[in-house]
Amino acid sequence: MPSFLTPDFGLLFWMLIAFLVVFGILAKFGFPIIINMVEERKKYIDESLQSAREANEKLANIKAESDAILMEAHQQQSQILKDATATRDKIIREAKDRATAEGNRILEDARQQIVAEREKALRANREEVANLSIQIASKVIAKNLQEDKQQVQYIDSLLNEMSIFNK
């Protein structure tokens, strides 16, 4: 058999030692560290992806929620606005009604007062007229009246002077 086909005992012996040494060291301090680190990194990346996905979902939920809240707020706002408008209209209407009523009442009062005043005035005038008439009569009597016609004219002029009857 050619020499290169027969395993050398010495080389086999050294190979045993060398391989066991390199295997022992690398199996303890080499490969497991690299593999563990890569697997942990993989786990970390997977977890990060998972949590990112969850966060995205949460974010989407939050967005939907905020949209809903916003929508509700909008509705409430419009409701409040509507209510406010209605209230305002009501208040205005009521105020108007009250004002109208009050105005009417005041007008009525004023009218009544006017009527009362006029009556009072008329009453006062009547006295005055009577006084005047007496004065006039006394003047008429005092003046020597010749004619009936002249008398009437005179009375008329006298009456014209008394402004109260011009109205």
Binding site: G10, L11, F13, W14, V21, L26
Partner: peptide, 21 residues
């Protein structure tokens, strides 16, 4: 004879081991 010499291959073997380590 029982030959445990550091031959060319044995030296190369240890160089490989050193490189691996």
């Amino acid at each position: 004879v029982w030959d445990f010499s550091i031959t060319k291959n044995v030296l190369q073997l240890w160089i490989v081991v050193a490189l691996l380590l």
